[in-house]
Computed example of a mutant assay.
Amino acid sequence: MSKKFVMSFSGGKDSTLALYKMIKNGYTPIGLLVTVRKDANISWTHSITKELLNKVSESLEIPLMLVECEVSEYETKFIETLKKAKDMGATSCVFGDIDILDHRRWCEDRCNEVGMEAILPLWQGDREDLVYEFIDSGFRTVIKTVNLKHLHSDFLGKVLNYDIVKQIKELGCDVCGENGEYHTFVVDGPLFKEEIKIKKKGIVINEDYGNLDISI
């Protein structure tokens, strides 16, 4: 049975940890599937530029499979890219979701449409345990986006460590950010050939969200 998979990749801690677990279990990634806004130079949700995504792809030595789409065509374009991955030998698509059932159903439905398996290595894991596993594994990630209803913009650019996790927890937020409290961008760790050097250009506020503007 083929152990090749395509990774539904955000550039954040959860999808990176899921990727790490799969590789440790003997699976081979054939590509990083990343959804990107058609009208902009950034990924959906985490707002990471194509330039940075290419750097991550080079450092991980895994090809990038960009899905450029508008909201209305998100599912269609995602499925098209899954079909390409299947043609390249992938029998499964891996996701970094933890315990939100609607997310799991979406992943499984998309995979079922193309005859692939949806694998969620973090599923039903304790959220706090998963954050510490990520940190203890040697990964380094910066907080890229925050929901200002939950976290102050001062968290932007901070490296996620035990102290920051404690601060997030004390504010009554989910330490994993699974409810959208924050998103991260992973810059280094055991899968990386070299660290992604970033320049912090400032903070952009868009309604309820603060986003760290970064570049190479």
Results as ranks from 00 to 15, higher is better:
residue 1 M to C: 07
residue 1 M to W: 06
residue 7 M to H: 00
residue 8 S to G: 06
residue 10 S to E: 06
residue 10 S to R: 11
residue 11 G to S: 10
residue 12 G to P: 02
residue 15 S to F: 04
residue 18 A to H: 07
residue 23 I to P: 01
residue 23 I to N: 01
residue 25 N to E: 12
residue 27 Y to C: 04
residue 28 T to V: 12
residue 29 P to A: 01
residue 31 G to A: 06
residue 31 G to M: 11
residue 32 L to I: 02
residue 36 V to P: 00
residue 37 R to Y: 14
residue 42 I to W: 13
residue 44 W to M: 12
residue 47 S to L: 11
residue 48 I to Y: 00
residue 49 T to D: 04
residue 50 K to N: 11
residue 51 E to H: 07
residue 54 N to Y: 08
residue 55 K to M: 13
residue 56 V to T: 13
residue 59 S to T: 11
residue 60 L to A: 08
residue 61 E to N: 14
residue 62 I to A: 07
residue 62 I to W: 05
residue 67 V to C: 08
residue 69 C to R: 05
residue 73 E to C: 04
residue 74 Y to W: 08
residue 75 E to C: 01
residue 76 T to R: 14
residue 77 K to V: 04
residue 78 F to H: 12
residue 78 F to N: 08
residue 79 I to T: 10
residue 82 L to N: 09
residue 82 L to Y: 12
residue 84 K to Q: 15
residue 85 A to D: 10
residue 85 A to T: 09
residue 85 A to I: 03
residue 87 D to Q: 14
residue 87 D to T: 11
residue 88 M to V: 01
residue 89 G to V: 10
residue 91 T to Y: 15
residue 92 S to M: 15
residue 92 S to Q: 12
residue 93 C to P: 08
residue 94 V to A: 02
residue 94 V to M: 03
residue 94 V to R: 02
residue 95 F to Y: 15
residue 96 G to I: 14
residue 100 I to E: 05
residue 102 D to V: 13
residue 103 H to A: 09
residue 104 R to N: 08
residue 105 R to L: 14
residue 105 R to S: 08
residue 106 W to N: 06
residue 108 E to S: 09
residue 111 C to I: 02
residue 111 C to G: 01
residue 112 N to T: 06
residue 115 G to A: 07
residue 118 A to V: 05
residue 119 I to P: 02
residue 120 L to P: 00
residue 120 L to N: 08
residue 121 P to Y: 03
residue 126 D to R: 04
residue 127 R to C: 05
residue 131 V to E: 12
residue 131 V to A: 15
residue 132 Y to F: 15
residue 133 E to D: 15
residue 133 E to W: 00
residue 133 E to Y: 00
residue 133 E to K: 00
residue 135 I to W: 00
residue 138 G to S: 10
residue 138 G to K: 03
residue 139 F to G: 10
residue 141 T to C: 14
residue 141 T to K: 04
residue 143 I to F: 08
residue 145 T to M: 12
residue 148 L to F: 03
residue 151 L to V: 11
residue 154 D to S: 15
residue 156 L to T: 08
residue 157 G to Y: 02
residue 157 G to P: 09
residue 157 G to E: 02
residue 157 G to T: 08
residue 159 V to G: 03
residue 161 N to D: 15
residue 162 Y to L: 07
residue 163 D to R: 13
residue 166 K to R: 12
residue 167 Q to W: 03
residue 168 I to A: 00
residue 168 I to D: 03
residue 169 K to A: 04
residue 171 L to E: 13
residue 173 C to V: 12
residue 173 C to H: 01
residue 174 D to P: 05
residue 174 D to G: 09
residue 176 C to S: 15
residue 176 C to P: 01
residue 178 E to Q: 09
residue 179 N to M: 06
residue 180 G to A: 11
residue 183 H to G: 04
residue 184 T to N: 03
residue 188 D to R: 06
residue 189 G to D: 07
residue 190 P to E: 01
residue 191 L to G: 02
residue 191 L to H: 03
residue 192 F to R: 03
residue 194 E to D: 04
residue 195 E to F: 08
residue 197 K to V: 14
residue 199 K to I: 10
residue 202 G to K: 05
residue 202 G to Y: 10
residue 203 I to N: 05
residue 206 N to H: 11
residue 206 N to S: 13
residue 207 E to I: 07
residue 207 E to G: 02
residue 208 D to R: 11
residue 210 G to W: 08
residue 210 G to I: 09
residue 213 D to Y: 04
residue 213 D to S: 11
residue 215 S to F: 05
residue 215 S to T: 14
residue 216 I to E: 10
